[in-house]
Design a binder for these strands. Structure first.
Lengths: 204, 204
DNA sequence: TGTGTTTTGTATCGGTCGGTATGAAATGAA
DNA sequence: TTCATTTCATACCGACCGATACAAAACACA
């Protein structure tokens, strides 16, 4: 019985901060994708050596899943936050504007990590690919449920399908991601979000 | 001075058809992406061995570029074809409907190859990545120029920016691609295209 | 039947991949 | 000081990567 993931006061203390190391790993995966990132890339960026990485994070797959968690609760936390907006219109506004802002932010790599780093993949990447895909689907479902609530509360027309609208919004966000990786500037992304916002039907 | 790419009547005849081999290669790259596809995957799918592949197509990079050409003049030829429609509205309709049809077609891998197989990439894939990106940008520009013509011809409101509209349409198409790789059915993709079509502004 | 030419199959190249064995170094406890 | 425990750094593992060397095989031509 090992007491893993529990920091122990005995033994040699680790010479790195797991949280900042995870942040560095996220940057690399974000920029290069899962398959495009080698362990050498990771250890160099994280400032640690291989055995330390495996001891702290398991292996490359598990590290990426941890990075995905961090990504969801960090840079794209605005998604869940946007669902708390009072009306469907404000939810969509916040989703699109924050997405454009994030993907145009020069501080991060371009585009969405869950799109950038995961779409493609050979046979060895089945598990990671499936995991990230289910995350994207889950996000879309959350948005759909929010729209269903909005219809029940009366601030969204019942004429449009909540599933259709949610899918449309997610498509716009993913479109923004690809525009960003195509080299679109922050201003262009902002303009694209506003343009799409003007065209979404059913939002009072 | 070698006379390459010219079929010579002398010497042992090749035992495979380069065109069908290229088709097989496209299927694999489409499904697995550039980095996710190994030479063993390619030779197995194409039914040829390594030296034959190199003699006929150069190397992995050149093969992928040839596949990209084939992709543009084959499965996605409808894009250039759609630009010949008489009005901007019909152009957009054809673009979105054909995109949804292609990406939902169970005969091909899901999604768009230029998105699926190229977005992510490490340092070694710079040239291929840049090439495919410039293709996506060029396609968007073609669509923009078509809209500018439509504005000059009067079937598209001058109130909307041609660049904005073109970018929006491309974003929808790319969004469809990601929906497809998320597992959306052909019917869902069709519905998504119709929904987006209803919401595009400026189309009479 | 040779002879030159091109493709074929096999076997292999150096390099890099993800993942580890091993022992030294650094701590708290005894 | 000594020991148990944990992390550190080095060096290495087999497997696979993209790419080739080499010679046998299959053709046209003489």
């Amino acid at each position: 019985m090992k007491k893993d993931s529990q920091f122990s006061s005995v033994g040699r203390p680790r010479a790195f901060d797991p949280d900042t190391a995870l942040e560095k790993a996220m940057q690399v995966f974000w920029r290069q994708g899962y398959e495009g990132t080698s362990l050498s890339d990771l250890t160099e960026a994280m400032g640690i050596n291989r055995p330390s990485l495996y001891a702290a994070f398991g292996n490359k797959e598990e590290l990426f899943l941890k990075v995905l968690d961090r990504y969801g609760s960090g840079p794209v936390a605005y998604v869940m936050c946007a669902l708390d907006e009072p009306t469907a219109r404000q939810v969509v506004e916040k989703l699109l504007r924050e997405s454009a802002a994030l993907m145009g932010d020069p501080e991060h790599p371009r585009g969405c990590m869950a799109v950038q780093g995961i779409l493609c993949g050979g046979q060895g990447t089945g598990y990671v690919l499936e995991h990230a895909r289910s995350r994207r689907v889950a996000m879309q479902r959350k948005i759909q449920e929010r729209f269903e609530r909005a219809q029940a509360e009366g601030d969204l027309s019942a004429a449009v399908g909540a599933a259709d609208l949610a899918r449309h919004v997610v498509m716009i966000i993913n479109g923004l991601s690809i525009q960003a990786s195509n080299g679109a500037s922050a201003e262009e992304l902002k303009a694209a979000a506003e343009f799409a916002l003007r065209s979404v039907p059913g939002l009072d």
